[in-house]
Computed example of a mutant assay.
Amino acid sequence: MSHPMHAALAGWKAAFDGHDPDAMAELFTTDALFQGFGPEPTVGRDAVRAYYKAVPLDRTAEGKVLHTYTVGEDVAGGFADVTIRNPEGWQSHVYMSLVLVREGTTWRINHYHVSPVMTES
């Protein structure tokens, strides 16, 4: 069986590429801590929905899971390498870390954090 981090990243990518803020919000717990590119962390599905509503419609993402872990049966997470781009050539390379919790049979994102990957010029 695949680690839940792989399914979480695939679900995130599908919602991101589909430009579906409602589907994105459903991937998260109701009390999720969210730190995207904004200056302050936010909490909850409404904050996640608002964040992804503001993402330009031409953006798509590619990602690869780099590391996974589990804590007991109901907590898991990992670290992914993600690149977000648009058709004109703009791109942003980030590392994404997720903490996942099991709600019944569904894994949801409880903690989300992205950090830009800095490259030397």
Rank of each mutant, 00 (worst) to 15 (best):
S2V: 13
S2E: 13
H3S: 05
H3I: 08
H3D: 11
H3R: 07
P4H: 07
A7H: 10
G11A: 10
G11Y: 01
W12L: 09
W12G: 03
K13H: 08
F16P: 08
F16S: 05
D17W: 09
G18L: 07
G18C: 07
H19Y: 05
D20W: 08
P21R: 05
P21Y: 04
A23S: 10
M24N: 04
M24H: 06
M24E: 05
A25Y: 04
A25F: 06
L27K: 07
L27R: 14
T29Q: 04
T30V: 12
D31Y: 06
A32C: 15
L33E: 09
L33A: 10
L33I: 15
G36P: 11
G38M: 07
E40P: 04
P41T: 08
V43H: 09
V43L: 03
V43T: 15
R45Q: 15
R45T: 10
A50Q: 14
Y51N: 13
K53Y: 01
K53R: 15
V55C: 03
P56C: 00
P56I: 04
P56G: 06
P56F: 00
L57P: 11
D58Y: 03
D58R: 13
D58P: 07
R59D: 00
T60R: 14
T60C: 02
T60K: 14
T60E: 02
A61P: 03
G63N: 11
L66W: 00
T68G: 04
Y69G: 09
Y69L: 06
T70F: 00
G72K: 12
E73K: 15
E73G: 13
V75R: 13
A76K: 10
A76G: 13
A76Q: 06
G77S: 09
G77F: 00
G78K: 05
F79V: 14
A80F: 03
A80G: 06
D81K: 13
V82F: 01
I84T: 14
R85I: 01
N86M: 02
P87I: 07
P87F: 05
P87A: 04
E88L: 10
G89I: 13
W90Q: 13
W90E: 12
M96D: 08
L98T: 11
V99N: 03
L100W: 02
E103W: 02
T105R: 13
T106H: 09
W107K: 05
W107L: 02
W107G: 08
I109K: 02
N110A: 15
N110L: 00
H111K: 11
H111D: 08
H111W: 01
H113K: 10
H113T: 08
S115R: 04
M118G: 12
T119E: 07
T119D: 00
E120P: 09
E120D: 10
S121Q: 12
